[in-house]
């Protein structure tokens, strides 16, 4: 078929960013978006912390809102001990949230749609929470895999299940974020490409008919906005939940 074809996956293709310097050090376009996310967070803090007012202005209210939201999430999920992990959870949450939101803009790379990125984050969370568990409880942390109040003869069955479900945590954590972001972006691209296909195939009628995929894409913007916030929240709250398990062992 001549004319446009739908290249839904091209948007995920990695290339080097930052010109020749980036090419020399393998700094990718995905890293450009990460750098932009981190920079936006830091700039928000710099601007928000300019006045340090008792009655906050808009930007100060925004970062205070973010601060208290994540802080309450930590304290509510992990308990008072959760404040130790608050900076970590905040960094993860804000980084993923900004990555998801920036990825929604055209020509911006959605780095959270890369399994390598999300799996690295998830493996870090997994390793960190397991480390916290062993650091807090020593070898007694192994008892985490032995459910309480279960008949002894069931243990040979249950302990492997517990271990498998524990080990599958990084997989589900990473695939959830990766799949949600990828799916949204693929759908956008498919519907947008469909508009071009309609116009190329049916001329003026196709152009009019493409109002349908356009409407779908507009609706998808709202959905993806929700998903972007929700998936960042889910990642952060699951991190808190794993840390809770590591600290409290139940």
């Amino acid at each position: 078929m001549a004319g446009p074809s739908i290249d839904a996956l091209g948007q995920f293709r990695l290339s080097t960013g930052l010109g020749p310097l980036g090419a020399a050090i393998n700094f990718t376009n995905s890293n450009e978006a990460m750098l932009a996310s981190a920079a936006i967070i830091v700039v928000l803090f710099v601007l928000g912390l300019r006045s340090r007012a008792i009655v906050p202005g808009r930007l100060q209210a925004l970062i205070e809102l973010l601060y208290e939201f994540v802080r309450n999430m930590c304290v509510d999920t992990i308990g008072e001990e959760g404040l130790r992990f608050f900076p970590l959870v905040f960094t993860l949450f804000s980084f993923i949230l900004l990555g998801n939101l920036l990825g929604l803009f055209p020509y911006f790379f959605a780095f959270t749609s890369h399994i390598a990125v999300t799996l690295s984050l998830a493996l870090f969370v997994f390793a960190f929470s397991t480390g916290v568990g062993f650091y807090t409880h020593g070898f007694r942390f192994f008892k985490f895999f032995v459910p309480e109040g279960v008949p002894v003869w069931l243990l040979p069955l249950l302990v492997p299940i517990e271990i498998i479900s524990y080990l599958s945590r990084p997989v589900s954590l990473s695939v959830r974020l990766f799949a949600n972001m990828t799916a949204g972006h693929v759908m956008w691209e498919v519907f947008a490409g469909f508009m071009l296909l309609l116009t190329a195939s049916f001329g003026i009628f196709g152009a009019f008919a493409s109002i349908v995929p356009l409407g779908l894409n507009v609706a998808l913007v709202a959905l993806e906005l929700l998903v972007a916030g929700l998936q960042a929240y889910v990642f952060a709250i699951l991190t808190c939940l794993y840390l809770h398990d590591a600290v409290h062992m139940h």
Partner: peptide, 21 residues
């Protein structure tokens, strides 16, 4: 580049973490 982006992410996130914390 698939693994390189992860290495640079580590650098960016460590800097971000230190700045924020």
């Amino acid at each position: 580049l698939t693994t390189a982006q992860v290495l640079w992410m580590v650098v960016i996130m460590v800097v971000l973490y230190l700045t924020l914390s």
